[in-house]
Design a protein around this nucleic acid. Sequence first.
DNA 1: CCTTGACCTCAAGTCAGCTTGAGGTTGCAT
DNA 2: ATGCAACCTCAAGCTGACTTGAGGTCAAGG
Lengths: 152, 152
Amino acid sequence: MLAKPAKGRNDLVPIGVLAQRTGLAVSAIRYYEDRGLIASIRTSGNQRRFLRSDIRRLSFILIAQRLGLGLAEIEREMASLPHGRTPTVLDWQRISRSLRSEIDGRIQLLTRTRNKLDECIGCGCLSLDRCALYNKEDRAGAAGPGPRFVLD
Amino acid sequence: MLAKPAKGRNDLVPIGVLAQRTGLAVSAIRYYEDRGLIASIRTSGNQRRFLRSDIRRLSFILIAQRLGLGLAEIEREMASLPHGRTPTVLDWQRISRSLRSEIDGRIQLLTRTRNKLDECIGCGCLSLDRCALYNKEDRAGAAGPGPRFVLD
DNA sequence: CCTTGACCTCAAGTCAGCTTGAGGTTGCAT
DNA sequence: ATGCAACCTCAAGCTGACTTGAGGTCAAGG
């Protein structure tokens, strides 16, 4: 019994394993599948089986979410990572660079806001017309969409 | 009839004026009133009348939202601004400093994340166990809650 | 054989922060 | 006096990202 039918070299994993490895809830993974973010095949008993590499796909989703991307955006970004292929280093580099510039943008926005707030601290006007902090020009939300908001 | 009932020195304004001055939708202002963020009195005909100073309260809400605070948090912060009193410069300073540290935190978090991402770009591992980007330690969401998400 | 736990589907619920709609009233200018 | 914009209430809907619940199946160990 050295060459077991694919049990020792376990390529296909059930949903619970994915959940455990990623920290996601099972229901969340099913939801991602519905949304088309990951794919599965079914056993004869209709249970999902995922590729081990989907752990990486999920990791990617989690990371991207941390950066404030919504699932739709992630979906777009993921379109380039073929289902069932482990993302190569090159894939990952391309995407991380794109994420990096996302973060950069957010940091800049926040920094600008902070500077304005500093100007404002001495002022106290709170005038929508004059306040540097609140002008229509660059309303662009320091906040992004997010999964569940953990902040404390 | 020199002393008109408070018409010339228009202290009380209808909801539409608030909306126009703040850029908020009328429905949003009513919603805030329901939530207890601002208060109004009614005319004999059951229409809301707000204090002019509520423009400032609303401004404050808008600014705080931009910084990623949720209405509940804002409510808390506002508890110190008595209804119907124009926030003093001191009120505002205290609060803005508190907001400032909020922003600081967010910037730091993002910056840390960016650094980790940089480390990761050369790595490409995407391993949840090893990846600096994704560890349970400081899961704390680069994203915050937000009103409507405007990003582009 | 039986239980336990992991799995399945599908519908509905949750939270935040509003908006939309239906149906009705007020207030101000002409 | 009348017209009409601005106001009112209340209920329901929406987006995003899930969770929860009900009701059922599957696989393995004792």
